[in-house]
C-alpha cells in the first residue's frame, strides 16, 4: 500500500476507535490488533505488547500514546502525527457541538444506557478474545505461562502496574542473561 494509503488507513482507524470504542485505554487494543496485525501484517504481536508497555509507563493519555506508537511503526513520524489527529478529532468535534447546541445533556435516557452497556459487553468479549490470541502467540513455555498468571494475580491484588512491569523486566533480564550463560535456557531463543 502506498504511503498516502497507509496514512489514510491510520487516520480512519484511529478516528473510528475514538468514536465507537468506549472504555478507553486497553479497549482499543483488539481493533489495533485486528487492523494492523492480522489484516495488514505491519505489526507483530510483540510490537503490540511493546505498545502496551510504553503506553502504561510513559505519562499522558493512553489513546494518544498508542496512536504515536502504531503510527510511527506503520508510517514514520508523519504517521504518528496523523494517528494522533485521528484519535483526537472525534472528541473535539463532539464536545464542540454539544457545547454549542445542548447546554444541558441528560444522561438518563434508558435506551442510551442500555446501548452503552451492550457496547461495553461487546468490548469485553473482544478484549478476552485478543488476550487468548496473545497467550497462544507469546507464551511458549510453561514458565512463561506461570509468569503471566503471577503478574495478573499481582495486578488483581492491586499492586501498582509500574511495580509489576519492573518485576517482569528484572525477571526477563535474569532469565535471558544469567541462565542463558549457564546453558539453562528457559525462554526459547528468538529469531532476532
Amino acid at each position: 500500500m502506498s504511503y498516502i494509503g497507509r496514512l489514510w488507513l491510520l487516520f480512519i482507524t484511529f478516528f473510528k476507535i475514538a468514536l465507537f470504542v468506549i472504555g478507553g485505554g486497553l479497549a482499543m487494543l483488539p481493533v489495533i490488533e485486528q487492523t494492523f496485525t492480522r489484516k495488514h501484517k505491519w505489526l507483530t504481536p510483540e510490537d503490540i505488547l511493546d505498545m502496551v508497555i510504553i503506553t502504561q509507563t510513559v505519562p499522558g493519555l493512553i489513546a494518544v500514546n498508542s496512536a504515536v506508537f502504531v503510527g510511527r511503526k506503520v508510517a514514520g513520524i508523519g504517521g504518528a502525527l496523523i494517528s494522533v489527529f485521528g484519535v483526537v478529532l472525534p472528541s473535539v468535534i463532539i464536545i464542540l457541538s454539544i457545547a454549542a447546541f445542548f447546554s444541558d445533556l441528560s444522561s438518563n435516557n434508558p435506551i442510551v444506557i442500555h446501548a452503552f452497556s451492550g457496547i461495553r459487553a461487546c468490548v469485553t468479549g473482544v478484549l478476552i478474545a485478543t488476550a487468548i490470541r496473545f497467550m497462544r502467540q507469546i507464551v511458549r513455555t510453561w514458565i512463561d505461562g506461570c509468569c503471566v498468571i503471577l503478574f495478573s494475580l499481582l495486578l488483581i491484588s492491586r499492586v501498582n502496574p509500574i511495580y509489576v512491569i519492573a518485576i517482569s523486566m528484572c525477571l526477563g533480564i535474569i532469565t535471558v542473561h544469567i541462565l542463558n550463560k549457564h546453558q539453562i535456557i528457559f525462554l526459547k531463543k528468538d529469531k532476532s
Binding site: 488476550a131 503478574f151 509489576v164 523486566m169 526477563g172 535474569i174 532469565t175 535471558v176
Partner: peptide, 16 residues
C-alpha cells in the same frame, strides 16, 4: 532484549 522479553509477559498480565 531481556528486559523487553520479561516486560512483554508483564504486559500480557496487564491485558488479562
Amino acid at each position: 532484549t531481556g528486559l523487553l522479553k520479561g516486560a512483554r509477559l508483564g504486559a500480557l498480565g496487564m491485558i488479562i
